[in-house]
């Protein structure tokens, strides 16, 4: 039984809106833990467009997704929120008024007064190539991520893709696999040049193969793969013998477990009121891309505003009966103390 982490608020999602929620909650002394499936903060900004410019963040005429993330992290630093990455919140259970239990797929258990769903477009999940029959091999011969490297020892591994995940796992699994083949549609890679160089060295040393082409079919029986049928770039078809295929085609967003938490949903979004950004379950808030209300715009700046209003109500749940004084960060010495600038 794992130790239960008790806290004021759990924020689900470390995208820009989840990060800014740490700030707004921090100003009203609501302590939080932040959970994300990804291995780093930033949500879509970090995963989908770190290098691309954003032009509509107030007072930042131009900022990239990666920069925005690092600036937010700097801004929320004083509040000492704890981050839990590589964890998907799978369960949200209400035990009573302002008493929620959350569980993650990694075995973490939280108990909190308030829950802030900042899950954006949902959980990032690996894209599954629409190869006929692929479902029947999933979990036995086809894997979309590597949880334990040992599971691949002694296997005939075929890795498909040309990004960092594909190249990193090619290099990391090659020493323990029985055989290793990398298949990609072109002889050019978006992965880091260093990994590409390393891969080419392994090929030159005869330790692995690199083939050009795209998988069109799978051969095997009872969930055990024997070969992948590949269309080469010259149009000819050939088979690559393998019992373990790892396709790396990037990530896509799926609503995921949020759908199973008993909240009202509207077209895969969570309806909220526009005074507190609270869901149909009191104490559970939804901010950022995941929520919906009349006039909703899926913009980062909208999520920031939603975080500020949400925090007012979260304060009331933490401190029933207490009045929250409206203060400016510019002039309030108590806010400045929290920010560590005074």
């Amino acid at each position: 039984m794992s130790d239960v982490i008790t806290t004021d608020a759990v924020i689900i999602g470390a995208g820009p809106c989840g990060l800014f929620a740490v700030f707004e909650l921090g100003l009203v002394d609501v302590k939080c833990h932040v959970v994300d499936i990804l291995d780093r903060p930033g949500g879509q900004c970090a995963e989908l467009y770190p290098e691309k410019p954003i032009y509509d963040i107030p007072a930042l005429p131009i900022v990239t997704g990666a920069e925005l993330t690092s600036r937010l992290l700097e801004q929320i630093k004083p509040f000492g929120a704890e981050f839990h990455y590589n964890q998907m919140v799978t369960e949200l259970i209400k035990h009573g008024d302002n008493d929620f239990e959350l569980k993650t797929d990694g075995g973490l258990v939280f108990r909190s007064k308030v829950v802030v769903i900042a899950a954006g477009g949902g959980s990032f999940q690996p894209k599954k190539p629409p190869i006929p029959g692929i479902d029947s091999y999933e979990g036995t011969s086809v894997f979309y991520s590597v949880k334990k490297m040992e599971a691949f020892r002694g296997r005939d591994v075929l890795i498909v893709g040309g990004g960092d995940s594909a190249l990193d796992w090619t290099i990391n699994l090659q020493p323990i696999a029985k055989s290793m083949t990398l298949l990609h549609r072109r002889d050019d890679f978006r992965a880091a040049p260093d990994s590409v160089k390393k891969m080419r060295e392994l090929v030159a040393e005869g330790k692995m193969q690199f083939r050009l082409g795209q998988v069109t079919g799978l051969k095997g029986e009872a969930g055990v793969l024997s070969a992948a049928t590949v269309k080469g770039n010259d149009g000819a078809t050939f088979d690559i013998a393998t019992n373990t295929m790892l396709p790396f085609f990037g990530l896509t967003m799926k609503l995921g477990p949020v759908a199973e938490w008993g909240l009202n949903l509207h077209e895969n979004l969570v309806p909220v009121d526009t005074a507190k950004f609270e869901t149909s379950t009191p104490g559970v808030f939804a901010i950022g891309d995941i929520n919906t209300y009349p006039g909703k715009l899926k913009l980062i700046l909208s999520g920031f505003h939603e975080a500020a209003l949400m925090a007012q109500q979260a304060f009331k749940y933490k401190n029933p009966g207490e009045r929250l004084l409206f203060q400016y960060t510019t002039s309030s010495s108590s806010l400045q103390k929290k920010l560590g600038v005074n």
Partner: peptide, 11 residues
């Protein structure tokens, strides 16, 4: 676009 097509199927 060429890079992004790596994430498409049956290119």
């Amino acid at each position: 676009e060429e890079d992004m097509l790596d994430f498409a199927f049956d290119v």
